[in-house]
């Protein structure tokens, strides 16, 4: 997408949509970070509180679900899917 060719101020909708797509793309990496990194940090150790660890993962999980739901809905609402790669 050649951004120079486009008027900057009239494109705020398209711009916003592309940033939402960026966020959607970023989401799994956020998830991987918060799921995998603690797993590695905890490796070999006995967790001090199993329930605490459990609650952490469930919390991360529900946050990811909520973020996905919100972003996807906003994305779907913002007009048709733009097919930028």
């Amino acid at each position: 997408m050649n951004k120079e060719d486009r008027p900057v101020f009239l494109e705020s909708d398209g711009y916003r949509l592309r940033r939402i797509v960026d966020a959607l793309r970023f989401l799994p990496f956020l998830g991987i970070f918060f799921v995998v990194v603690p797993g590695i940090m905890l490796s070999g150790a006995v967790p001090r509180s199993l329930s605490g660890v459990g609650i952490y993962f469930f919390a991360i999980w529900i946050v990811l679900i909520l973020l996905t739901a919100i972003l996807t809905r906003v994305f779907a609402k913002r007009g048709k899917e733009t097919e930028e790669q």
Partner: peptide, 22 residues
């Protein structure tokens, strides 16, 4: 109660296997 039982159970004394986790 569940959380308390959990931390007291045999599972809680297991080492966390990071390799398997990932």
């Amino acid at each position: 109660d569940i959380a308390a039982r959990m931390d007291a159970s045999a599972i809680a004394s297991q080492k966390f296997n990071g390799g398997r986790w990932v």
